[in-house]
Design a protein around this nucleic acid. Sequence first.
DNA 1: TCTGGGGTCCTACAGCCA
DNA 2: TCTGTGGCTGTAGGACCC
Length: 348
Amino acid sequence: MFYMQRRIIHIDMDAFFAAVEEKKNPALTGKPVVIGGGGNPNKRGVVSTANYEARKYGIHSAMPLRTAYKLCPHATFLPVDFESYRYASQEFKSVLLTITPIMENAGIDEAFLDASEVSETSEIIASKIKTGIKERTGLTCSIGIAPNKLLAKIASDLRKPDGLTILNKTDTESQLWPLPIRKLYGIGPKPEEHLKNISIETIGQLASLPLEKLIEYFGNSYGQYLYDASRGIDDSPLITHWEPKSISREITFQEDVRNWQVIARTLAELTKEVVADMQDSGYQAKTVAIKIRFGDFQTLTRAKTMTGYTDSAEEIRKAAFACLKRVELKKRVRLIGVRATNLEKAQQ
DNA sequence: TCTGGGGTCCTACAGCCA
DNA sequence: TCTGTGGCTGTAGGACCC
């Protein structure tokens, strides 16, 4: 039996939000730009994207805006303009679809292509993608090409910006194993710390652990994942179509709130937005959940499953408030959110 | 003192039922 | 009738990603 090796391409736009902003306002080019929250570095919010100039000051995604401001007060701070980014996203993805229709959306600034059936060489495909995106949007991207999604994503991260990296199965030892464990998709701060405690720092060292050990440390599912991923093994297919599992809204107050009226009014507004979203996209929900984060970051959720599926504003609001009633509000509230889950496409 | 918002998936546990 | 077991569903929390 002959198995053809897949050819998966991962495309990652370079400092996407910042690049779109620089396109909108070329005067920003070459200066440090930080995008996040409402664009006011003295208010609550985190960095969504920092351009390469701003990264030189140590600014990175997920950093509090106030911290970014301390590191580089003369940077330009801008609010997130999702409309523009969504438009640019559609534009670059339309270029990708000229290569092959087998595309997986992986967020606003990333995508995978399955180019196994495309006859051109990887270098020619990559060059077509880069030129096409540059012509269409004026933006650059980094590309990784490999036999699976896991390696393609790691590859696109190896040379940035405007890079191209092609990995083969046989490159696992030389290219994958020297990398720090954090580079492996799915390893966040917690597993990283756990692994460092047992002196595992690189993907190669992770690959030296027997499967039984990994399962003992991390459970069946995640243990098996780490075992395979550290060897560059990944058979997961591209997801070209998917249905949402939940629709939600949440908001962090500028200052922690004790006033129940404010909390209730905010919950009602968020619920309205969720319902509008559901109705626009044609979904009904059976379960409504709320999320509350207190000033000390303690976070709790309460959920209520209704008797049937609904997109009625009245029913969903009632369910959300039934959840709120079950929470003892004895501390100031930092964040409140509402989520509709257990979704079903509404009958037409 | 600081830590967004919109998602997904996994795990643990409790209650119900056959 | 009592007890144990295993599956299913709902709930809650935690971790990850962009």
